[in-house]
Amino acid sequence: MAPQRNRRPGFSRRAQYVLFIGYVAAALGALLGAVLLVLSTLNPPAYAIVRGALRELTTPVSSGLHGMRRGITGIPRGIGEYFGVIEENRRMRADIKRNRALVEKARQLVLENARLRRLLAVRDRGTEQVAVARLVNASSSSTRRYATLNAGYWQGVRTGQPVRGPEGLIGRILETSPNTARVLLAVDPESIVPVRRTRDGVPGIVTGRGDGLLEIRSATIANLPFRAGDLFVTSGTGGIYPPGIPVARVLRNTRDLAEARPLADPDRLDFAVVERPYLPPPPPAPKPESAPK
């Protein structure tokens, strides 16, 4: 009698091994998850150390996968940019000719502004760059919004330092490990950024919503009108974020509370700049000396 072609998996030793390994992996994963859950509840500092160690192990793999994904997804865009480069160059040349007068006027205003600052003895504090690193990943599937930076305290990154990209503010450093750092994004609900409106200097407060958008409230005027397209930049209040970093643009006309879109999208950024806080933290108050006995 000829042997049967379709044999059940139970007769295959290889299938039994694969099934057994799957059960073992599932059990180990469940055990590891339970241990981490208990550790995060009973000992948060130890859990933070374990989380930092996991970031150190997974960041190189995430960096490689991120680079491959960016390279593959960038092929169609590169082809489109290649065919449109000639028309783009023509438009840019026309824009340069039209804007020469505006550039000259802007240069005169810069010189006049510098002269007035010297007359008023205004003291400016420049920003100091700490590190330029790659944004490995950013959480986008939960209400808490974090990102991982492949630079840590060995590269000078410290907790509380602001993080920005070419388009605007990204967030601030929340945790550090030797070669990685955890970034609290500006769109996270726990993020609070003091800002001002560029067209009139009205101060405001930007908070995250957890869904990729921001909320802007006025810091001084009740029932403040917002217009679609209003641009808000950091004000420097609080001493963390340097003034003038673009943060958000209002989406629609409203009053008192505005919905805005962040100008910097971490999901589309490759690199970010870590800077020192705008103002250093104040020194600790001296301890009162004990009275002599």
Rank of each mutant, 00 (worst) to 15 (best):
R134L: 03
R196K: 15
S290P: 13
S191C: 08
P242L: 09
P44V: 10
T237F: 15
I21Q: 10
A48M: 11
E128L: 10
T180F: 04
D256G: 03
L119D: 11
F83C: 07
E190D: 11
G126V: 11
L269V: 13
A48H: 05
A131E: 02
P3C: 04
L36V: 14
A53M: 02
I96M: 15
R182Y: 02
I49D: 14
P166L: 09
A48Q: 13
L111A: 13
G71H: 08
V202R: 03
E81C: 02
R69F: 02
R7D: 12
V247G: 06
E215N: 14
G201F: 00
A2G: 02
E259F: 00
G236Q: 11
V122T: 04
G74C: 04
D124Q: 05
R252P: 00
N6P: 04
V110W: 06
R91K: 12
G236A: 02
E112V: 02
G210C: 10
D270Y: 01
D230P: 01
P286Q: 09
T237S: 12
R107N: 13
S140P: 00
A260G: 01
F271T: 13
R93S: 15
N99T: 13
R125S: 12
N43A: 09
L257G: 01
V18W: 05
S235V: 06
G210Q: 00
G239T: 05
R115T: 15
D265G: 02
L116G: 01
Y23A: 15
M68C: 01
S62F: 03
P194R: 04
G64S: 12
G171M: 02
E289T: 15
S191K: 01
F271D: 12
D124T: 07
G160M: 11
